[in-house]
Every structure is written in C-alpha cells, then in structure tokens.
Design a protein around this nucleic acid. Sequence first.
DNA 1: TTAGGGTTAG
Length: 717
Amino acid sequence: MRRLLLSGHLKFQRSSHLSLSLLRFFHVQSAISVQTDALSQFPCSSDQWSVGDPLDDFISILKNPAKTLPVHSYVSSLHCVALKAGFTENVQVGTGILNLYSKCSALDHVRKMFDELSQRNILTWTILLSACVLRGEHELGLSLFKCMLVDGVLPNCFTLATAFKCCAKNSSLRVGKSIHGWIFRNDIENDIILQNSIINFYAKHDAFGYARKVFELMPERDAVSWNSIIGVHVQLGDMTAAMDLFRASPSKDVSSWNTFINGQMENKFDQTALELLHLMVKIGPLFDQYTFSIALALSAKLALLDLGKQIHCKLLRLGFENDAFVKNSMINMYSKCGEVETSLIIFSNRVQSPNLSQLSPSFMGKLGNTISWSTLIAGYVHKGFTEEALALFSRMLNEGAPADAFTLTSIAAACADAGIFQQGRQIHACIEKLGHGVDVFLASAVIDMYAKCGSLDDARKVFEGMECTNIVFWTSMIASYALYGEGREAIDVFQMLLEKRIMPNKISFVVILSACSHAGLVEEGYKYFKMMQKDHGIVPTIEHFNCMVDLLGRQGLLDEAKNFICEHNLRHHSLVWKTLISACRVHGDFEAAIWASEKLVEIEPHEAGSYVLLSNIYATKRDWAKVSRTDLVLHDLEEEQREVILQHHSEKLAIAYGIISTPCGSPLRIMKNLRVCGDCHEAIKYVTQATDREIVLRDAYRFHHFKHGICTCRDYW
DNA sequence: TTAGGGTTAG
C-alpha cells in the first residue's frame, strides 16, 4: 500500500500539497525507510510549488505527532529539506527540528543547532534539557540549567520539571532542594506536573517525609500524583499504607493498577499481586503494555504456564504482540515456565531493526534486540541447557550483538553449572576486556564460577580485587569457602562482613551454617543460629534448621540432633529426617537410623525413596561390622571383586589419564556426578603426595581439594 | 508515575 502510494506520489511530484499529505501519512505510519524515500522526492525549489504556502505545510508536518518516536534518519532528512528550501530562518521551523532531534535523543545535533540559534528562549532551553534527560546525561542537564539561569532566562514549569528529573537521577539532593526553595521564595507557578516531579525527586533520594509533605500540600492531584505517593510507600515496604492509598485514590487509572501490582511483586507479595491482577480483569481498566509486561513477569516468577498462556491470548486479542517489551516478557515467561521451544519461536520473530548503527541507544533499547538475546540465554541457563546457552552466545556474537553484562552473567553461571574452567576463564577475560569487571552481579557470578570450576584461588582473587558492599557478592565468597570445607576462612569473611556493617540475609546464614557444619564447628554454628534471630530478626526456615541438624549429626551428636528436631517442632519435615538418617549411618547408630527412617515413612508413606532408605538400613544390619568399613562402596560383593571394581572408579581413571597427559606438577581438576567413595578419597591423598600435584575433585555435593596428602574436607563429607 | 533480561543456599 505504502509503496503503491509512493509510486503514485512520484508521478505527481510537482504537487506540493500531495507531497506534503503523503509525507504526513508516512510520518504517522512511521514507516522509516518510506518516509526517507518520500522526503527525497520533496519539491524544494519555490518554482515547483503549485498552490498554497509550503512553509505552513512544512511547519504542520514538524508539529504533527507521530505514533512512535521519530527516527534520526527521518529527522535529518527533514532538516535537509528545510535547509534546501530556505525554511530554517523561520523560528517555528528551527524549534520544530530541534524538538524532533531531541525526541530521537540526537543530543549532539541538538547542541550544535542550539549553539547556532540566533535567538534562545525558554522553549529552546527546555528542549535542550529534555534531550539531556532522554539521553541519560543528567549532570550535563543540570549544568546547562545553571547556564540558563546565568543567561537570565526564567524557567517555566516544564523546565523545572526537567531539572528535577536530572536531580532525581544523580546525587543532587542538595541542588534539588535549593531549586525547590527557590520556587517557594519566588512564588513560581507550580503545576501538577512539576509537583509530581518534585515528589518523584524526593522519593528517589529516600527523602520520603518531604515527598509525603509535597503530596499533602497539593491543591489538586492527578493519577500520577497518587501513583507516585503509592510508589513511595512501596519503596518503604509499607504495603498496608500503599494499599490504603490505592483504595483512597479517586483517579485510579491503568497505571495506578500497574504501579500497585508491580509494587506488590517488588515486595515479594506475589500472591497479592496475582489476586489484584484477577481483580483488575474483573473491575479494573483494560490492560496496557505495562500491565502485560508485569503480568507476564508474575507468571514467570510463579512458573504459572497456564496463566502466562491466557495472558498471551489476551495480548493477541488487544494487539500488543509487537511491543518489544511485551515480546521480551513472553520469551522470559515461556522459558522460565519450561517451554523453551516456544520462547525460541517468539525470539525468532522479534522486531529486527533496519539498521542498528543508525539508531540512537534509547531507540535500540526500545527495539530490544540485545535484551531478547540475554533473556533467551538466561532462560536456557535457568533450565540447565548449558551447551545450548553457550551455542546461542556464540551465535549472538557472530550476529554482531554486543555482549552486555546481563548476558555475560548468565554465561558465567552456565560455566559454573558445567564446571568448565577454561571457558570460564575466557569469559572472565572477555568481561574485563569489555569493561564489565566492576558490575557487582557479574563479579559475584564470576566468584561462584571459579569456585565451582575448581579454582578457589581465582575466586578469592576476584573477591579481593573489588571493594563492594553487596551482600550477594560477599555470600558468594563465603559459599565458595563452604563448598571446599574451609569453614574457618568462611567464618573470617563472615566476620569481616559484620565489621563492615553489611547486613547478611537469610541465604548468607544458610551458607555460614553449612560452612560450620562441613568443618565440624558446632559452637560457632550455634552462635550464628542465635545471632541470625536475635541481631538480624531473621526467622529461621527449614533450610537453617536442617543445617543445624546436619551440624550436630555430622559431629556424632545424634541425641542432640534428635532433641533439636523435637524442640523446634520439625517432625513434619522429611528433609531433617533424611539428614539425621545420613548422620546415623555415618556414625553407625543403627537403632537411631531405624527410628528416624520409620518417622520418615510416616510422613511420606507414598514416597518410594523413604522405603528404599529404610530397606537399605535393614540390609545394612545383616553385616554391620563389615558395612561400617565399606558402607560407601558396594554392599554385597566379595572382597576380590570389590578390589577390581574399585580400580575402575571413574575418578581414579580420570586422574591416571590426567597424570600421563598433562605437564608435571600442574593441577588436575576432576568432576563426577556421584559422591566420591572412601577408597578413592584415600587413594587421591596418596597420589598428591607421590606426584606433588594438587587435585581438585568436584562431586555431587561439594569439592575436595587435595594437596600434599591432605584434603580440605579433613576426611569428613 | 508504572514494564522485560543477571549473582548467593538447599
């Protein structure tokens, strides 16, 4: 249709009115390449005009709001037309083009044009500041705002709102406060938009009292005001107040619902978010693209595939399937809910930009090309499809998409899962080269990757090379030590964390308790279990309780472990019984093992695993003395047979192959999917002594780091 | 004013 119109247009190119109408049509349709083609046919010399005033028509095109943000190539073509036709002397044309450059984030062009302007007024200054905000240049925006005041130009509400946007995005609480004071003192007209931006500015700087005050003093409020103040309480985590405000808001529009539902998710009230979403369908406004993104994110988080599919149908009916955000949320939802193939299909049909290099960064962001890659890769890693994720990553690089910090984090996690040290190291080099080394998410993932690939030293180097107060970053290092049974080192790092007044979370405590357990540090374990509740107000969950049962059980304090289960009313948790049974077996307490297994069968009468455990214990009883020596190998074999089989255990074979195929003295890293047996563990100790090599063995649960005849697990695992 | 992708344990 557009092509047809364009070819028709070429026949009548001498008619300026027809040219302009077509141009406007293409602009509204936002067909980028066609617009530019149409512009190239635009009659430029005055003798080509048949009727009417071309200047007026041109100005009306500049002011005509397009459905989407203007594209840079289209605006520069318009600019060329204006130059050729001699329109640029006109103030409205100059301002119009400046505004379009600003909207497509072409800050360089805006600054150049602004510098060349003969007359600067409040409008041109405001356009310049908006361009800075759109481009994320908030510091520059503020310094230009100050230049404007020095020039004696009095700001209006729009300019001030833009200045507050700059202050909200950087560390300018002081500057923003002084502008607010100036508005008060000079009795400047203060409209709703400006007041909303002031609320938002205070909220971004955690100055919630001020935000609330501005809201309360507003003579009139719109949906944005209400949403902003609801957002303040969401940020504070005060969801009761947020709920009251949401109910009280007289202007509940679709964005109010979005803000509130999203706030519930941010505060981990996913069930409430789900209920509100149902309520919105019943009594609320129609969904917009934000609602769809939020709803899909919620389905992904709760792994509710059916709900996700219903939302998919709904968005198809309402025509939101081409929105880049929504599409990306769909890719995420399908992969997190286990339908990786569907997410791949949606990914393959995603919006492709005509020419990425010509577009501004914000426009590229809106098209979502890089983001879709990282979402898809994250989905594959999440589902454990490590090889596929790595293959997608190299395809992504081949297709010229940049490796951003998000993608690299997922790839580092993939290397950790697969325990592939060499690839992990290459990824780390790539991260440093691209300048992503300072990203805290990425650094945490790299620590975890090195630890899980068998190099605790490299993990430690990354940790020590960065000053950081992020709790996940610290927990990653503590978990790495715990994984290797280095309980004392784990405790040292945990103490450093407390000294720096970084707040440990519930996972940090699971990690430190498990470190104490693996290192047999009972007293310290009790200390942290109490500290967690008393000093940090963290209510212990089954994971914490289980660590304590494990800690006591491993040390042979079986009665204490039993009492702990009873005292804390953990009888209905199968996990603690399994832990206790394992400890009873290690310490050869058959009676206690039977007792615990019977408890387990009571709780899980339909679980085959419970009966297998129980029957194993009965089987063990037949020859307990023998089993206590060989319990980790095979129960019913003759001694000679056993010796032959033990020689072929995969870790021994791997080590033998490693020794003959690598340089003397280099470390060996071995991975296996089962727990190491006692015989292999003993043998490896001798091998490290005889060959003077370090051997790192990753089994199903943890690492064994052998050096000079000693293992970090101290023979306890 | 509100939206999508990343890290730690078990």
